[in-house]
Design a protein around this nucleic acid. Structure first.
Lengths: 343, 343
DNA sequence: TATTTTTTGGCAATCGATTGCCAACTTAAA
DNA sequence: TTTAAGTTGGCAATCGATTGCCAAAAAATA
């Protein structure tokens, strides 16, 4: 006996009051087609019988479940959890639910998650794609099933959807320009996987800043796939061991990478910021409390989450599916701390 | 024209193949009651027609939506987001969805979230209650509606439900004993709101360690409600300004509090760990990289999330609703770092 | 009093998948 | 050849709320 007694339905209420279920339904949805006296009675009885609407039935009938699906690489990463928190803030007020999935950076798992969300008939899917390379047929599927789609942060450029992104190129360029202004000359770059647009953009920003200031672009100073603390530490050891080592490192992948750089430098007795400038990315809380504190780039993650939520409600909830998708770009902010200030 | 064409249903497939919808349904759920040849044909046609099951209809019929609702104070807090990540790891493999809500530490909002989840007919609600005081009728409601309930971390003790908790008392006691063994004699306590059981337990652990080692319990060394970085900093300033200041501070509320302590001590030129020992709580990533690094208590949050997920599937998914609830206690681990080592 | 208008509320179809029951058909055993 | 056992697949009810349509009742108007 899994469910000893059944839950109260509108039919139970109707039977008890000897009226039609339709009237109960109307009363509960506060329709004007019910006599105020009857309505009050129904509401009172419903409360007494401990009635709770069966949203599954309502959803089926209405064809919408007031739910937004979110797919992120990892829930427990400051950047993403802030975005989710920001979104929840908006959706909560609108009575929408958030279903959260994580791809763990795996393409196959991302596809799975997206399909599950399509099955759920969510109203909208919000996604930041996994690092593992793969196609984007699954996102096309979302559109084919007439589900609204918002890409954020890591987006598939070719796909014409709403996008909420950071201006990575500009932020990176600013960061590198700042390094140059501080007198750093040989600036190394720690890159992320180049199949992700955000990392390509950050590299582009790095290159453009070098060009703008007339500095040479040196292949040996650019390290591919240094996007975890460990990989960055390794890359840093290699860089600092060169006969002509860099005097600054831009860890474009994350603050964790920057931390790896800082630890290696400290171990090797290289002083930061005097001998080596370090700049990270994301403004993780810890960057403020390392010694020296780390210069980084804040992406306004919480408010980005709110932007995504508002985007859905303002532009997509009721609009035609085929409206021209908007791209919203948020300009991140360079936060200068001690790790790059040698003036 | 909001929905230009309808989605494919099993009836569309049935009509096309001139068979009954029931057969389509059986084929799709891989029932043995359908001829393998027919089954293959149906599957092929379904794929061609881009069929995706309407989970809302299925849920309604089956009376379950394979969804677990999660209510936490804040999604974007390391501890909670790790727990959610751990849970998701388990539920994903079982094909369950996670609906996430945050109470923002507000009681009224928590009640709202819980009611929304009851309406959704989720299979289970997993909750860690808000700090703001309030009743727990809403949790009783969950049980009344025959929805399974798991409380974790911050729980309502009186309520007989499954619980997954940390042994806060023991961990705190261990931490304080460690301080005593390191030679600290006047150990102050930064407390959290005492309406939350976890903070009462941590205080109890503090007291019991003092008693065990025959140290006096001094009211003036216990600071109420010092549970943010700012409040802790303030409390610390007061403590260290005393004529007879403490020689160690146990920030039982969080590592953020411990950080506040460390910053104030540094500002005041008090050396850690020589003149002042500091111990935090939660093992936030940054505790490893402060200088000195901060001794803290790891709560195994990710694996705690997995435990919660497994608890549901192993004990509750199919069992009688009225089984004796289990309480699982996870023993946190003291992580000794530099901020308390003066030997 | 007769007629029109407005309220109120019931009937029944609908959303789409599932499943118990039964009939038709196939295969195996007698 | 006849009977029994096993397969396959259709019919129709069901999950619970919603809503278009219509009728009865009440109120307003002539």
């Amino acid at each position: 006996m899994k469910t000893p007694q059944k839950r109260t339905t509108i039919y139970d209420i109707a039977k008890k009051l000897n009226i039609a279920a339709s009237s109960v339904s109307r009363a509960l949805s506060n329709s004007s087609k019910v006599n105020p006296a009857t309505k009050a009675l129904i509401l009172k009885t419903a409360a007494e019988m401990n009635y709770q609407q069966n949203v599954m039935a309502s959803n089926l009938r209405k064809g919408s479940n007031r739910t937004i699906g979110v797919v992120v690489p990892r829930i427990n990463q400051g950047y993403f959890s802030n975005i989710i928190a920001g979104m929840e803030d908006i959706t909560y007020n609108k009575g929408y639910n958030l279903i959260i999935c994580q791809s763990n950076e795996l393409h196959a798992r991302e596809v799975d998650c997206v399909n599950a969300l399509i099955n759920q008939h969510v109203n909208c899917i919000v996604i930041s794609i996994a690092a593992e390379p793969g196609g984007h047929e699954h996102l096309q599927q979302v559109l084919d099933h007439r589900i609204r789609l918002i890409q954020f942060d890591r987006v598939v450029d070719e796909l014409e959807t709403f996008k909420v992104i950071n201006d990575n190129e500009r932020a990176s360029s600013e960061a590198v320009s700042h390094l140059i202004q501080q007198g750093y000359q040989r600036i190394a770059l720690l890159e992320g996987p180049q199949n992700l647009d955000i990392f390509r953009q950050r590299k582009e920003g790095y290159l453009s800043a070098l060009r703008k200031h007339g500095l040479p672009i040196l292949e040996e100073l650019m390290c591919e796939n240094a996007w975890t603390k460990e990989l960055s530490a390794e890359a840093t050891r290699k860089l600092l061991g060169m006969k002509n080592p860099p005097d600054a490192i831009f860890a474009s992948t994350s603050d964790f990478s920057a931390l790896g750089v800082l630890e290696v430098a400290t171990q090797m007795g290289i002083s930061v910021p005097e001998q080596l400038g370090i700049c990270g990315y994301s403004n993780e809380p810890f960057t403020e409390i390392t010694s020296p504190s780390i210069t980084t780039i804040d992406q306004y993650s919480f408010s980005m989450g709110k932007t995504i939520g508002n985007l859905f409600f303002q532009e997509m909830e009721v609009a035609d599916l085929h409206i021209e998708p908007k791209i919203m770009s948020i300009k991140p902010k360079l936060i200068v701390r001690k790790s790059t200030q040698r003036s």
